[in-house]
Design a protein around this nucleic acid. Sequence first.
DNA 1: AATGAATGAGGGTTCATTCAT
DNA 2: TATGAATGAACCCTCATTCAT
Lengths: 204, 204, 204, 204
Amino acid sequence: MSPRTNKQWESLRAEKRELIKQTALELFANEGFHSTSIEMIAQKAKISKGLLYNYFESKEDLLKEIIYSASNELWEKFDPNHDGILTDEEFIYFIRATLYAIEANPLFWRLYTVLMLKPNIVHIIGQELIKASAMHIHVLLEYIKIKAQTDVETEMFVFSSMLKGAILQFVSAPEMVPMAYIEKHITSFYAFRYKIDLQNITSK
Amino acid sequence: MSPRTNKQWESLRAEKRELIKQTALELFANEGFHSTSIEMIAQKAKISKGLLYNYFESKEDLLKEIIYSASNELWEKFDPNHDGILTDEEFIYFIRATLYAIEANPLFWRLYTVLMLKPNIVHIIGQELIKASAMHIHVLLEYIKIKAQTDVETEMFVFSSMLKGAILQFVSAPEMVPMAYIEKHITSFYAFRYKIDLQNITSK
Amino acid sequence: MSPRTNKQWESLRAEKRELIKQTALELFANEGFHSTSIEMIAQKAKISKGLLYNYFESKEDLLKEIIYSASNELWEKFDPNHDGILTDEEFIYFIRATLYAIEANPLFWRLYTVLMLKPNIVHIIGQELIKASAMHIHVLLEYIKIKAQTDVETEMFVFSSMLKGAILQFVSAPEMVPMAYIEKHITSFYAFRYKIDLQNITSK
Amino acid sequence: MSPRTNKQWESLRAEKRELIKQTALELFANEGFHSTSIEMIAQKAKISKGLLYNYFESKEDLLKEIIYSASNELWEKFDPNHDGILTDEEFIYFIRATLYAIEANPLFWRLYTVLMLKPNIVHIIGQELIKASAMHIHVLLEYIKIKAQTDVETEMFVFSSMLKGAILQFVSAPEMVPMAYIEKHITSFYAFRYKIDLQNITSK
DNA sequence: AATGAATGAGGGTTCATTCAT
DNA sequence: TATGAATGAACCCTCATTCAT
């Protein structure tokens, strides 16, 4: 009935949805969720306030959609069903992939970090992303476990904390702590510790 | 009219100020700054909204005061002018002191972490606390620099990140990642790495 | 392009108009005018919001059209030019016809009742329906006037009020106060009062 | 603690509450609930929008409070525990009292009538007022039952409908159908029907 | 010192209406 | 003819802040 084909339509809608989500993400990450008004999002996205509600049920729904999208991307990017233990090369690859996934969307990960600091955040962002993140780091930890130089728990704790701390620094100030810097040091550290020859591993 | 001396009055004022700050800290940390209303703080502190403005100029001023207090406490607790290099024992002590300072006020440090994730946060919390934190960790890093097993920059990066990551995990969920657990693993790791005998070091 | 004749088109348009009006009536009566959105009407009628404006100028215009239609129906159903006085039989018939006209469209009459309670409703619904209703009850009142057992004014007041009260009860809760019940009691009352033998009058 | 006594305060608050309720009642009754904005109420009552929420939780809560107040007044005015049957004199008194209670607050009763026409209104206004009204008319119906000239059910139906219809006319247009007019005809009708001598009954 | 009534700007949200397609 | 994306005014409500008492 409509003069436009369904395809065209859906595509237009999807694009606008994406525009709104991206705009909102920037503001949520930079100004904070509560400090960002619908008005601000609308202005930045150059749409009217009302239109936003044509795409999202509420401001909170918009936040959830942002989270869910990222969650899905993460699932798609990393195979959570990786079985078996990583080889040395795969380990380095996996670290790099992890870090550059973060780098690809620093705004989102800053937002995510802030949200994780809210008690009972589950009510807002659900479990999906948390699961996705955990599943992914699990693959790395399995490798660490095998290679542990000291007791396993400590080895895992150090890796886990270091990764989180590095990411925290990155999302706090990507320009001051660039991802390349982080990647270099983490791989150096583990290359030395686990006797991995980085020369043989193709850079990203 | 009042028989109270000036001293007593000032003391009472100081107590009430402290009460308001503590109450606000709990709410800011648990609910978020914007989700906490002056009304909520006043009710929890059992004072009137008006009185709060007798002690603090604005809601933002209250936040700043909370930050400043913590900053001062930090300066007092740790001697930032520690010169010379730490001994092995002092290093362990310093780590423990750092961690237990965090543990003593998890609400504050969660709030602080969230604030640090806001760009241009300087406008809100100023530089004091940042300087205090940096100065303090600097003492540890100087030690690390000396003991480095690999290249110095990596060694410092790993320590710095690990510490931040560990603290992040603690403030996110103190009951799931208790400080004692963190302390154990960090000290284990460095004791092994730097050949420090923990047996000889009196526990906190 | 279309092979349809003008007649067919007009007929289709009229049908769709009717569909929209009927759908809107249901919603206006059940949810209230202001609580019913154009969106709701369009969805229930399975058309688009835009199309509705192809048939009606505005939401208020739609309401007016609903009222006007009913007004016209009323004029058509009852001959307002009935001259001369009703016979006993005609009186009973007229009452029944009145009541069953109401029963045929309870939604409309509930809506109408609510609207009548708004001051200056004339601006919205105009005078037509009011005139039609008045004209119609006038025929009955003329009969009552003749048959009055007490003073005429009182007799007319009682009839007029009773009829309105009965209808009010019906539109408020048709399932609790069915029209058959109302009809039975009104006719009983007047049959007795005016010595009319209901046996001789064919039931509806 | 407060410089004003509690009594003064509560009194001021109660007065303002009453002002808001009365203002809102006028607007709700004249313009309709949904057509009345908080802004309108605030302007008419010469207060700020915000202040209204200091006295009522929401617009709907304000409506409920208006209904509840009227409900309570009704319970206080009429003794719902009247036992035994009314005397002729009491019957006339009761009718008059009923009608003049309506007359005392025509705005409220118009609002009430509109609300009663909404399906499932119970969710909004609760049962109290409905019970209060029913209990009150019940006393009159008990008397009617005894005095019935025809079959009891019809007699009660006629009275009940007539009363409701009369009130409906009054609330629709008090200036066109004044209460004195209504009272005169209802009492005339029943005085004649039940052989009551109105001369002996002191007028209101 | 202490209260809470009062303000009003600004928040999220809805919805009648328009218009490009 | 028919669609629904798009608009923006107006809605209800919240809240930091002020101020008379």
